[in-house]
Design a protein around this nucleic acid. Sequence first.
DNA 1: CATTACCTATGATCTCGATCATATGACTCA
DNA 2: TGAGTCATATGATCGAGATCATAGGTAATG
Lengths: 208, 208
Amino acid sequence: MTHPFQELIDHLPANARSELSLAKGEFLFRQQQPAAAIFAIISGRIRLFRDLPDGSSVTLHVARSGETFAEAALFAENYHCHAQAELETKVMRLNSRPLLEAIALHKDLGLHLSQILAAQVRDMRAMLCLRDIRSADERLLAWLRMKARGEQMNVAIDRPWAGISEELGLTKEAVYRSLTRLQREGLIERADRQGRERSEVIRLMRRP
Amino acid sequence: MTHPFQELIDHLPANARSELSLAKGEFLFRQQQPAAAIFAIISGRIRLFRDLPDGSSVTLHVARSGETFAEAALFAENYHCHAQAELETKVMRLNSRPLLEAIALHKDLGLHLSQILAAQVRDMRAMLCLRDIRSADERLLAWLRMKARGEQMNVAIDRPWAGISEELGLTKEAVYRSLTRLQREGLIERADRQGRERSEVIRLMRRP
DNA sequence: CATTACCTATGATCTCGATCATATGACTCA
DNA sequence: TGAGTCATATGATCGAGATCATAGGTAATG
């Protein structure tokens, strides 16, 4: 599944979706425009931000590859923020009209949409909770524990640490240092799967 | 509206909901138990956390007055975490069975649930975005801008700063200091509505 | 009215993570 | 083969925010 809507899309008429390409700096939609669709990012990056009456603006979200955004636009008359590509970006567009019609017709779809959103809420609450942990070591450890799968408590790292650091709200340097500290204290073990796949496996050590 | 489900509840049969009281330390549900309901907090505080195979545990969320939680339980066989009261707590319980039945019957409800969840996703993304701002001054300012209503860019503060600091991921001391700095720099004005209502109004000053 | 509790506010100190700099290995590609 | 890029480190320094301490103001309580 490349993005959360994948399964939903399979149950939609073909006219409900389309693919768009945006140049760097191009706007996907603008604040106040009539809301007509929701989106998922195929590649690239889109910044959502709002202009305020005093002339300033606030960033509301930066959506990256695989993420969805503007879901709330399904229920609004107008977009409440701008969406601007920070890079050359490809997005999947799901038109509100046919989407709502499909949901009205086939009630499972409505529940499925709720399910997708509920999962996002759950995951984001967990990320917010992580950010409440001040210590870099503790925060990284908690993140690893959340990601760990199976009795062995292994975590496969399949992307650069720089991206993970951002997700954690830390710099990459802080994360590298935490990794070496956690390893030195015997809380994790690092296995360089450096062959072929360039992915690393972290094993969490039993010690509460 | 005291909590996000309020409107939803009005459209549900009476048997779908009930109110529970929990003593401090009491568990509302436990990991692995069959998932049978979702919840909204009336008063108090509930911590959601997961036990891991290695004997450790991670906190996934701390739900407070007015918040909902365990929405994903609607779509799961079992609860994936524990829910324990950190204080004496009252919760509203919405049973999954009648809720799902009501949604199947009356499709607007399914959309309404999606709407509630989409709004939460939107708000939480904004909070996560805030946390990416390192400077206390900038973070507080961005928060105020998000909260500001009307051309006047006023923000009514109707609860102690300690709670707001937590939401911002700062200590109350850091927030107090930021407030005085922002005021000294002319970026905000503070009006002590100290009569009766004990609420304060922050006005954001025009200056990008 | 005295006591307590809580919110607001500010000072002093210190720690940890941000920042800047540098190095090394792996991979790409011209 | 060498230049360029990127991910992975690690060292040095600095500052912002955490932490601890203290104090005044207001509201609630008996």
